[in-house]
Structure formats: C-alpha cells, structure tokens
C-alpha cells in the first residue's frame, strides 16, 4: 500500500461525517446485533414462540372470567366488547416496548460485558448513535414480534383487525419509538451509573407497562395511577395504535392521542438526550467506563 493511497483513505473518512455517517453506523450496529443473536440457535426459537407465550396466559385469564370472547362490562369501559382483539393488539405492542426497554436500555451493559464498549467509544461515531443503532435493531426485532403476534392472534385466537389502519398504525409506531427512546436514554443512564441497574430497569419498565392500557383500559387503575398514566408516551401510543388497527383511518379520539403523543415525545426525547449526554460525560470523568 502506498503512502498516497493510505492518506486518502483517512482524508476520505474525515470528509464524510454528518447524518449519513451516523445512519450508516446505526445500521451497522443493528446488523451486528442480528448476527450476534442468530449465533444462539435457541434465541431464534424463542423469538417465534414468544408471542404465544405472552399472550396465552392473558387470554386464559380473560376466558376464566368472561367465558366468551365478548364482554359487556368491557364494552362499558372501552367502547368495544371484543376484549380478545383489544388485549391481542395491546400485548403485541408491549412486546415492542419490552424489546426497546430491555434490548436498548441494556445495550451499554451488554457491550461492556463482552468487552467491546470502549472500542465502540473510540470510533468517531456520536455516543448516542450507539443507543440509536441498538434501538434500530430492537425496532426491527420487536416490530417483527408485533407482526408475528398479530398474525397468530388473527389466525388462532379470533382477533379481528381493520387493514385500513395498518399504515397510520405504523406512523404511531414511529411516534411511539421517539418517546420510548427518551425513556431508553434515561434507562441507559441508570445502567451507566448503577451496578445493579437491571433491577431498576425491570421496575421502571414494568411500571410503564402496568400504567399503560395494554390489556385493560386505564380506568381500572387506582385514580392516582390514571393521572400518571396520561404522562407516559406508552399510554397514548398503545391506544392510538390499537384504535387504528381496530377502527381503521377514522378511529375515534385519534387526533387528541396524536397531539398528546407529539408533545410528550418532544419532552421525553429532549430530557432523555440531555440526561444521557451529561451522564456519559460524568462516567468518563469518573473513568468508570470499563468497570461500571
């Protein structure tokens, strides 16, 4: 290799930069994560049966009290008597949320455990790109889970979907991901700062899931939790996502949900990003990147 060639390689890289470079890096991180996951054969199996395993106990518990796939009590709470479809869509969506909270929230810990975190940090990508890249992977991973679970629910459990709602529902997924990414940045901070961070992640993500209308409307929650629930991006995302898939384009209350989601998204992503920025600096000042 001659000297001129070699210096041009470096110069070329220096010129590239910008959003495109970050996107490329995020995509590379996502592909890498798929490769790593597929080297564990059991995780592939898990991925296929997971939708069943999450949804089945819910369905059984519902059946134990309702005795049929419709419930008039449920209708008075939610406007639909079809509780099976309601919780099928809700729990499918919660798969995406879990994938983002756990998969992305723990990304730094995972890279640290395998020993590659510092290497990633010495590359010229932005540090939050590591989080975004992992998010990209988990949106693909979790998204595939949502699709699988919805298909299973329709084929085997009698859920009914309105296909006109699929495209607007995808739009909601985009908005949902932005808000949840705010939460994920905060979770990443916890992972960076606390040794037993996974425990806090478990509690935080479970709380977000409990106060969200995933398999029940929030009116069955205690009143205080109902107010807290309204501040969570997950609450509005699940509702809007489900409304589109159940009622199509002209879902009721959808404008309010989208507006609320937009406001909450901005708030969450700004606060989350700032938290991450300062925590990451703090951890480097502590010199604790390799041993946190």
């Amino acid at each position: 290799m001659t000297q001129t060639e070699s210096s041009s390689l470096h110069e070329k890289m220096m010129k590239r930069g910008g959003l495109r470079a970050e996107l490329r890096a995020a995509n590379a991180l996502s592909i890498k994560q798929w490769r790593v996951e597929f080297s564990y054969p059991l995780s592939v199996l898990y991925f296929i049966v997971m939708p069943f395993l999450w949804f089945l106990p819910m369905l059984l518990a519902g059946t134990a009290v309702a005795g049929s796939p419709t419930s008039s009590v449920f209708g008075t709470y939610t406007g639909t008597t079809d509780w099976v479809t309601y919780i099928a869509i809700g729990s499918a969506f919660s798969g995406l949320a879990m994938s983002l909270f756990w998969g992305t929230g723990m990304a730094f810990r995972r890279e640290q455990n395998v020993g590659t975190l510092e290497t990633l940090m010495t590359t010229p990508i932005r540090r939050d790109t590591i989080v975004w890249g992992t998010m990209l992977h988990n949106v693909q991973h979790g998204g595939l889970g949502v699709i699988l679970q919805l298909i299973f629910s329709v084929l085997f459990f009698g859920a009914t979907l309105n296909l006109w709602g699929v495209f607007p529902a995808l739009g909601i997924v985009v908005l949902a991901v932005i808000g949840m990414q705010g939460i994920v940045f905060a979770l990443t901070c916890i992972v960076l700062l606390a040794k037993q961070g996974w425990m806090i992640i478990e509690v935080v993500s479970e709380v977000f899931l409990i106060i969200a209308p995933i398999s029940y409307p929030i009116v069955v929650l205690p009143p205080i939790l109902q107010y807290v629930s309204l501040a969570s991006p997950l609450t509005w995302s699940v509702d809007a996502f489900r409304s589109f898939l159940m009622y199509g384009f002209l879902a009721p209350g959808i404008i309010q949900a989208v507006a609320a989601l937009l406001i909450i998204d901005i708030l969450f992503i700004v606060v989350g990003s700032l938290l991450f920025k300062y925590t990451e600096r703090y951890v480097r000042a502590q010199g604790a990147l390799s041993q946190f």
């Binding site: 134990a64 009590v73 409990i210 029940y216």
Partner: peptide
C-alpha cells in the same frame, strides 16, 4: 408488577372481584 396486570385485565373484562362464569 408481573402479576397485577392479570388481575386488572380480569377486572376490566368481568367487573370488579367476581363473575358468574368464574364461580361456575
């Protein structure tokens, strides 16, 4: 935290506490 959602869902589907079908 894992198990409460089941009870909340059962409450939403059947109303608080009990249901005829469940007793049966």
């Amino acid at each position: 935290l894992w198990l409460a959602p089941y009870l909340l869902m059962m409450t939403a589907v059947a109303g608080p506490g009990t249901s005829e079908y469940f007793s049966e």
